[in-house]
Each structure stands twice: as structure tokens, then as C-alpha cells.
């Protein structure tokens, strides 16, 4: 294995693990201790923080830290009367396009690199050079060529998100158990059949690791590109609120981004558990 190949392989996050399902731990009986071990405990901490925030904002008012109740009111007003949802829609549209392109391109390139040596040799240095560059650095260049429209945001997302999908698709397709490839050989599968019936499903759990990283990057860049370029979207909305000193509105926008990210992640985990169900069962519950 060459050093560069090792770098690629080592960088994949998550392993395709074969073998037996881990024995399930017996469920603990729910006592007082059970409550402290449950998710409910963590959520009550979130609520406690909000209460603490409300209290601090009332005893020591500061323009930079409005109480959550005022942010809530501003949020409701912005959702019903303001253009918060419209701006969020812009961001989501850019993210949808960018993420879809990154996913398809990343899976295709990653698997092609794993299965065709020439393509690995051709693309590996490019991917390695591209990987450590923070994607926001491309924004000024892209604005030069694509202007300030939706295309700019989409291109930035594609640049940022494709790389994690490539690396994980490559890693997944490279780490297929030899016995599984023997199966493909002894049943005389053609190159395409091997790809479709063996390589793609076997690599799927790790492809999903890449898709999840790409999802997070897509959101960051969808919001961030609007913020930096100031063209449109929820990022622009937040920075605009800050610059016009409508601080409650700024927090409302930030909270919207946080909730959107949380919801997207939940949706992703749901889809992942459906598509790679055999793997999810082995891995136990997913860690967010």
C-alpha cells in the first residue's frame, strides 16, 4: 500500500465491520438512576439552561442577550409576517441541489476510484490537495464566475461536501471482505453485476458515513455562503438582523438554523436505518 493510499484509507471515518451482532445488553430497570441515564435528563438540562438565560436577561439586561421569551415572540412574528421562512427556503433549495450533486458525484467517483486503478491514480492527488482547503476560500472566486445567484451557493456546497462522500465511498468499496469477492467470482458475476450486487451494497454503510458528514458540511456552507456573500438565504438573514441591531431577530434566525440542522440529522438517520437496515441492526443505536 502506498503512503497516499494509506492516507486515504486511514481517513475514512467508521469501519465496515463484518462478524456477529454484538449481544444486546440487558435493559436496566428504570429507577431513579434510570431517569439520570435517560435522554430526558439531557433535555431537562437544555430547559434549565433556557430558564437560567431568561433569569440572567431579566436581572442583568443587555442588548446583546435578549431573554428567550422575547426571541420567541420575535420568532413567531418573523415566521408569520416576516421573510424568515422564505429565506430558509432559499438556503434549503441551494442545499438540496448542492447535496444531491455531491452525493451522486461522490459515490460515483469514490467507487470508480476503488474499482479502476487508472482513475485512482488520476484523482487521488487532486482529492488529497483539495481536502485540507477550507471551502469558504472558494467563495470569492466562484462569485467572480457565477455571480451572486443560487448557482454560487450550490457550487460552494458541491466543492465542500463531495470530498467526504468520495473518501468514504472509496474506503467502503476498498474494504469489501475477500470472501464476498470470492462469492462474486464463483457465481461468475460480470464486472457490472459485481458492482451493483456486491460492491455497492457492501460499501453502503460507509457511504452513509460520508453522506452524513456531507450533510453537515452542506448546511454549514449553505448558511455560510449566504452570510459571506450577502446574497440571500438564512445566513444573509442573520447577518442582516445583526447589522440592523434587531438582536432578537438574529437569535430567531440562529435558532432556526439549529433546529433545521437537528431535523435534517433526524431525517437522515431515519433514512439510513431504512436503507442499510442490516448494518444498523449490527451497530446498535446510532450516535448523533
Amino acid at each position: 500500500m502506498s503512503n497516499t493510499e494509506r492516507a486515504l484509507t486511514l481517513n475514512r471515518l467508521g469501519e465496515v465491520d463484518g462478524g456477529h451482532a454484538a449481544p444486546k445488553k440487558p435493559r436496566k430497570s428504570l429507577g431513579v438512576l434510570g431517569l439520570f441515564h435517560s435522554r430526558l435528563f439531557g433535555w431537562s438540562a437544555v430547559i434549565a439552561l433556557l430558564v437560567l438565560w431568561e433569569w440572567i436577561a431579566s436581572v442583568a439586561p443587555s442588548p446583546g442577550l435578549p431573554p428567550p421569551s422575547r426571541i420567541w415572540n420575535s420568532w413567531m412574528a418573523e415566521i408569520t409576517k416576516g421573510d424568515l421562512l422564505a429565506q430558509l427556503g432559499e438556503t434549503m433549495l441551494a442545499m438540496l441541489y448542492g447535496y444531491a450533486v455531491a452525493a451522486v458525484l461522490g459515490i460515483a467517483l469514490g467507487i470508480a476510484m476503488a474499482r479502476v486503478k487508472v482513475l485512482y491514480a488520476l484523482f487521488e492527488p487532486i482529492v488529497e490537495l483539495w481536502r485540507p482547503i477550507p471551502s469558504i476560500i472558494f467563495i470569492p472566486v466562484i462569485i467572480l464566475y457565477a455571480g451572486l445567484g443560487l448557482e454560487m451557493n450550490v457550487i460552494v456546497i458541491v466543492i465542500a461536501a463531495t470530498e467526504s462522500v468520495i473518501l468514504n465511498a472509496y474506503g467502503g468499496a476498498r474494504s469489501i471482505p475477500p470472501a464476498l469477492l470470492d462469492t462474486a467470482a464463483t457465481f461468475r458475476l460480470t464486472w457490472w453485476q459485481t458492482l451493483r450486487e456486491i460492491v455497492l451494497p457492501a460499501a453502503a454503510p460507509q457511504i452513509f458515513v460520508g453522506l452524513r458528514l456531507a450533510l453537515a458540511k452542506s448546511l454549514v456552507l449553505a448558511v455560510g455562503s449566504g452570510m459571506i456573500a450577502g446574497n440571500s438565504g438564512i445566513g444573509f438573514y442573520v447577518i442582516n438582523a445583526q447589522q440592523t441591531l434587531d438582536i432578537a431577530k438574529m437569535y430567531a434566525g440562529a435558532a432556526t438554523v439549529a433546529l433545521t440542522g437537528y431535523a435534517l440529522n433526524l431525517l437522515f438517520l431515519f433514512i439510513e436505518s431504512r436503507v442499510v437496515h442490516w448494518h444498523a441492526a449490527q451497530r446498535g443505536s446510532a450516535i448523533v
Binding site: G18, G19, H20, P177, P178, A179, L180, D182, T183, A185, T186, F187, R188, E197, I198, P201, A202, A204, V276, W278, H279
Partner: peptide, 21 residues
């Protein structure tokens, strides 16, 4: 010269030779 059409190979490593999906 390649896997013959009329032979099938069964490996020791059943966990890895079946299609887990």
C-alpha cells in the same frame, strides 16, 4: 482459466461470504 460455470466454491468464512443485506 476463470471460475468454471459448473463449479461453486463454499468458503470457511460464512459470515463474510453471504450477502448480509
Amino acid at each position: 482459466v476463470r471460475p468454471p460455470s459448473s463449479a461453486r466454491f463454499v468458503a470457511q468464512d460464512y459470515t463474510q461470504s453471504l450477502l448480509p443485506w
